[in-house]
């Protein structure tokens, strides 16, 4: 089965080069020159496996495109930022991106990221069929569903994977590095902001009071744990 990728990038030459490399890796790449075109192409649900989104776009900027995609779609989004340490990264993650790559990005890094992204969103091996219940929250890993107070919660696949890792640890504290490795497939030098921003997004969806969380708890100086 072909994996389909939507590339939203305004620079024609860069678009062409990335398409060449990704096609080599077996991706079917659709190109969009700006946010409007990208959003039009995304209107058809389930058409793409992943979106590669440049944050600096003419017209609607990347952050806004990200937010609009998230309103209707949980497709994994990898954003392309100019700099790793700029505020763009945090803002992009807040807007709903799953991961990021920085320019000049090499095809090798990009392909590895996309593989990790699909691996974690695609398969559900090792998930226990028995739902994990914590107070008002019920996590059904076998059907990728989270139910709070009887209502299903819409999580992106990365958020779900993060929650699953924490829930499967059964109250053990997981460090940011461990979570980076398990959820994003990063090595030692991953960006712990990925974890922190995703935890924040997750709390906003599953906690009654995100500022005083009861399910996903920060253990100062160590990491996060799930549970009472």
């Amino acid at each position: 089965m072909d994996r389909r990728l939507l590339l939203i990038e305004d620079d024609a030459r860069l678009r062409s080069a990335l398409t060449l490399v990704l096609s080599d890796e077996g991706w079917v790449v659709d190109e969009a020159v700006d946010g409007e075109q990208g959003l039009r192409l995304l209107a058809e649900p389930g058409r793409y496996d992943v979106v590669l989104l440049d944050l600096r776009l003419p017209g609607i900027d990347g952050f806004e495109v990200c937010r609009r995609i998230r309103r209707t779609n949980d497709v994994p989004i990898v954003m392309v930022t100019a700099r790793q340490d700029s505020h763009d990264v945090v803002a992009g993650l807040e807007a709903g991106a799953d991961d990021y790559v920085t320019k000049p990005l090499s095809a090798k890094v990009l392909v590895a990221r996309l593989r990790a992204l699909l691996r974690r969103t695609g398969s559900r091996d090792g998930a226990e069929p028995k739902p994990i219940v914590d107070d008002d929250l019920e996590i059904r890993l076998d059907s990728a569903m989270v139910v709070r107070n009887g209502h299903p919660v819409s999580l992106t696949r990365t958020e779900l994977k993060l929650l699953a890792e924490l829930a499967n640890a059964r109250g053990r504290v997981l460090s940011r590095e461990e979570l980076l490795e398990r959820v994003w497939g990063y090595d030692y030098f991953g960006d712990s902001r990925l974890v922190d921003v995703h935890i924040r997004r997750l709390r906003a969806k599953i906690e009654a009071e995100p500022a005083a969380p009861r399910h996903v708890i920060t253990v100062r100086g160590m990491g996060y744990r799930f549970g009472p």
Binding site: R172, S192, R193, D196, I199, A212, P213, V219, R220, G221
Partner: peptide
């Protein structure tokens, strides 16, 4: 002591859990 460690800059969580749960294992 690990408690003296400061959390990374981007951590807006405000929950405080002064106790260490008994089943916490340190790597």
């Amino acid at each position: 002591h690990r408690q003296s460690e400061t959390p990374p800059a981007v951590d807006a969580s405000t929950d405080h859990h002064p106790w260490d749960p008994p089943w916490v294992t340190t790597r």
